[in-house]
Nucleic acid binder design. Structure first.
Lengths: 142, 142
DNA sequence: TTATATGCAAAGCCTTTGCAGAATT
DNA sequence: AATTCTGCAAAGGCTTTGCATATAA
């Protein structure tokens, strides 16, 4: 909950709603869509607004407390934990599941390429598409 | 135009509309949104339907004649040229421009990581966010 | 001739915006 | 007390779908 103090540090307000969104994000395993978070919170606080979730997520991303991942058309979010847990995402085209992977030297490689053209890199997002192990196995049996 | 014969190869029909969409995609420099393509085609064929553009793009992607790139919320498309011109994209957060980059060994790195977990990788999409050279310069002056 | 594709209209997601009332500092 | 936030409703992009008509093969 300490992380949220960053909100006050910005001169903004630490409201119950913001706590709820951040808590839901931390509790959620893997990535969560705004809608999933809203549903989860609604169990405790009926009528919780999607609008508020979106606004809060924007704020959390801006503060570096959450990361936004573009999976397909919709955005997914995940809490940024301590220690740079930089990872990328794999999406299974068959079952839609997502998996985390770490690609060593990815950042270095991209930095080298961007440095050459004077692009000031802030974030790298990589999404791989294919078939997860279970779905790949199922296919090879067919 | 040979590439389009792949459509017939699938037992599907090579219509004037499909030719138009593919031609527009090839002529377009850089990435094109469905809407941009539709506008371009509409200059020659007034009233050309966005619906048709979307349906055709889906088909072209499926046939490997086009590549879909998720830039922000909207999709952008580019023709797949001969010779693997695999590249990735940088998006400037200030002016919204996109730039192509090539990241050597990117594919190898990702393949290594996916092979370890048995994920059958088909495509890799990387998007970098930051500031393009002009915008970065403008900022450092401020 | 027969299945496929297009045009059009409508609906569907996901997300953002405007504004009045509520709540934090 | 002053400013920021929330809830609600509405609109806004982008994309998909349904169905009758037109068209490629």
């Amino acid at each position: 909950m300490d992380a949220l103090e960053a909100i006050r540090g910005r001169g903004l307000r630490l409201t119950p709603q913001r706590r709820l969104v951040y808590a839901a994000l931390e509790e959620h395993v893997g990535h969560a869509t705004a809608d999933q978070l809203c549903s989860a919170i609604s169990l405790k606080v009926p009528g919780f607004q999607r609008t508020t979730v979106y606004r809060t997520l924007d704020l959390l991303v801006e503060l570096g407390l959450a990361r936004r991942v573009q999976l397909g058309h919709a955005s997914a979010y995940e809490a940024v934990r301590d220690g740079s847990d930089l990872h990328q995402h794999l999406v299974c085209e068959v079952c839609g599941s997502t998996t985390d992977i770490r690609v060593p030297q990815l950042l270095e490689g991209v930095r080298t390429a961007t440095a050459q053209i004077g692009f000031d890199l802030e974030q790298v997002e990589l999404v791989g598409h294919g078939r997860c192990r279970p779905c790949a196995s199922a296919r090879s049996l067919a």
